[in-house]
Design a protein around this nucleic acid. Structure first.
Length: 626
RNA sequence: GGGGGCGUAGCUCAAUUGGUUAGAGCAUCGGACUGUCGAUCCGAAGGUUGAGGGUUCGAGCCCCUUCGCCCUCGCCA
């Protein structure tokens, strides 16, 4: 510490400008460090930034100066500017300076091809020390792998790293494209409230106590759903918003409690209109950010097809490897597990991994893959390796004996199996089987190198069921949300067969990730009431929760529909990270804490009193007062 | 709420079966050095092994408790 103080005094003692104390900064930036090129040779420039690294040769001193745009090399030469050179020898990493000098071309053999600015350097004539810095807890360098806990505690340091700056830059560019796109297409950006009304359905709400209405609470919005529909009733015609949403559920690698949606609603449209317009936005983003041409129109796939072939409503279509139902074959085998499942209405379904027979050993399958399947609720994993005998593929497995020759042939046929392949089967209730097979398919597709990271396979999944049966509550729940409109031709099933009504809902999926979803809404109050009935929402409940909205629908609601994109996930895909915290400037941990600010925290008793709240005693929590 | 992984110097990691004074690279500090760019060379400093307890002659290592981070199931209309 004493050294640091001395060094500042040293700097002050000579002719160079050291305005930390005086506060008078003379050198105003003229260029970004990282933007300088050979074309700038000869220019007199002033750059400002952080000392990224310094190389002191006793005589010559080199400093790599860093700003948002990159690095540039500063040279301090004792022959030309002895005082400046002397001061420069005391510079340390992350000190902030402004330097004036001349851009000059580096001589032959001294260029640095690793830097975009590597052909030039700045011969510094004078500089100002704007600030010193403590030694940072870790290096500002993408090469060193720093633990995330440390990064989150010192996020201001972490965000100096080029990779983080790049991700936030891309995020900015995307939101700029979004705003331009919707503006070009006649949308208004309109803000909606954050302090809203709690609705007990869906995700858990974040609650905010009201001071003025004692004992009452606002809820932070899970999405601006009802407000955007009301904006359509209000005649705004087209709305969008880049908006924070809040869901108080456990985070995941790709999920934060607060996240950002690109929220969109349009009047006088059908689902095709919404998809056709909004896929253009995604195409524009992929084109401008990645240079990737997304084929338009984006492929459509029904929900039913997605579940049948991929076991999931967000299929990764970078590779084929479709799931095949072999219940008909397995049900006739003598393998009790399969016949039992088929007799009780379950299915036997599986996939054929090309080359998987060579890639996976028996213990890979029976331990690693079987454990993986069981993590997702699969009860066992049956396998057959496919090998060629006399030029014909045959099945090899301890289960072969339960299948006749003909059944084996049928199985090979069904999967189109060839020498070296691996057939994996799961048996059980259809939902359970699909839930286990879908992640297995993706895992194997990645492990076998079929899912290339630089490839982007888009698909609209359409015709979602309107309802899904909730066995615990013994009632139907909305699959999307209760304002989703059924498909017209399925309306007659409303009384008789509600489970098979399709909805005008659609999800945009890329590489197995849902990046957006929406629907055409019900704009007829009578039909909305009917749907509430089917959801076992009483008139009173509907009135309590959405009364304001139902009343709005009665005042001339236009037909309307919309969509919401998950901005964070979109940025994850565009930047190729699987960690959502890497695309959020100030994210939270799995316990929802901000390690930098240490939120959440306890509050003053006076604050609680003002809100008429009292905190119950509880056993743990290190931040609790004694 | 369940399952799994991790926690050792500022950072990234090592430390044999429980056995000497817990090591290395980077960073830091001092010195040397005319073109470096992951500078180099010489030297120095740096540790409550996340915390607490236990077993033991002896614990970074074994046991118990606890805190934190990550992944995951449930959850996320």
């Amino acid at each position: 510490m004493t050294f640091r103080d001395d060094s500042i005094i040293l700097l002050h003692s000579n002719q160079d400008l050291n305005p930390i104390e005086s506060g008078v900064f003379m050198l105003k930036r003229t260029e970004y460090c990282g933007r300088l090129r050979a074309s700038d040779v000869g220019k007199s420039v002033i750059v400002s930034g952080w000392v990224h690294s310094y190389r002191d040769h006793g005589n010559l001193v080199f400093v790599d100066l860093r700003d948002r745009e990159g690095l540039v090399q500063l040279v301090f030469d004792p022959e030309n500017h002895p005082d400046t050179h002397k001061s420069a020898r005391d510079l340390r990493c992350e000190w902030v300076i402004s330097a004036q000098g001349t851009v000059r071309r580096r001589s032959e053999g001294m260029t640095n091809p690793k830097l975009p600015t590597g052909e030039i350097e700045i011969a510094v004539e004078r500089f100002e020390l704007q600030n010193t810095a403590k030694t940072p807890p870790f290096e500002i360098d993408d090469a060193t792998n720093v633990g995330e806990e440390t990064r989150l505690q010192c996020r201001y340091i972490d965000l100096r790293r080029p990779s983080m700056q790049n991700r936030l830059r891309i995020r900015h560019r995307v939101t700029k494209i979004v705003r331009d796109f919707y503006d070009d297409n006649g949308f208004y950006e309109i803000e909606t409230p954050f302090l809203g009304k709690s609705t007990p359905e869906g995700a858990r709400d974040f609650l905010v106590p009201s001071r003025l209405c004692k004992g009452m609470f606002y809820a932070l919005p899970q999405s601006p759903q009802l407000f955007k529909q009301i904006l359509m009733v209000s005649g705004m015609d087209r709305y969008f918003q880049i908006v924070r949403c809040f869901r108080d559920e456990d985070p995941r690698a790709d999920r934060q409690a607060e996240f950002t949606q690109i929220d969109v609603e349009m009047s006088f449209v059908n689902s095709e209109d919404v998809m056709a317009l909004n896929e253009k936005l995604i195409c524009r983003i992929f084109k401008e950010i990645l240079g990737v041409e997304v084929p338009q129109p984006v492929r459509r796939m029904t929900y039913q097809e997605a579940i049948r072939d991929y076991g999931i409503d967000r299929p990764d279509l970078r590779f084929d490897m479709k799931l095949k139902d072999i219940s008909d074959i397995a049900g006739k085998s003598t393998f009790k597990v399969f016949t039992g499942v088929v007799e009780s209405g379950g299915i036997v379904k599986g996939l054929c991994a090309p080359g998987g027979g060579r890639k996976y050993s028996r213990s890979d399958i029976e331990k690693t893959l079987a454990d993986f399947v069981s993590d997702f609720g699969g009860k066992g994993l049956a396998w057959f390796k496919v090998e060629a005998e006399n030029g014909k593929p045959v099945l090899k497995s301890n289960l072969v004996k339960f299948f006749t020759h003909e059944q084996q042939e049928q199985m090979l046929q069904r999967f189109g199996a060839a020498d070296g392949d691996l057939i994996l089967l799961v048996a059980g209730p259809a939902g359970q089987v699909n839930k286990a097979l879908a992640p297995l398919r993706v895992r194997i597709g990645k492990e076998l190198g079929f899912a290339r990271p630089e490839q982007y396979a888009f698909v609209w999944v359409v015709d979602f069921p309107l309802f899904e049966w909730n066995p615990d509550e013994k009632r139907f729940d909305s699959m999307h949300h209760p304002f989703t409109s059924p498909i017209e031709e399925d309306m007659h099933k409303l009384e008789t067969d509600p489970g098979n009504i399709r909805s005008q809902a659609y999800d945009l999926v890329v590489n197995g990730s849902e990046i957006g979803g929406g629907s055409v809404r019900i704009h007829n109050p009578a039909r909305q009431a009917k749907v509430f009935d089917l959801l076992n929402i009483t008139r009173q409940q509907a009135e309590d929760r959405f009364g304001f909205f139902l009343r709005a629908l009665e005042y001339g609601a236009p037909p309307h529909g919309g969509i919401a994109f998950g901005l964070d996930r979109l940025i994850m895909i565009l930047t190729g990270t699987d960690n959502i915290r890497d695309v959020i400037a100030f994210p939270k941990t799995q316990r929802g804490q901000c390690l930098m600010t240490e939120a959440p925290s306890t509050v003053e008793l006076a604050q609680l009193n003002e809100l008429n709240l009292r905190v119950q005693a509880h056993s743990h929590g290190k931040h609790q007062p004694e």
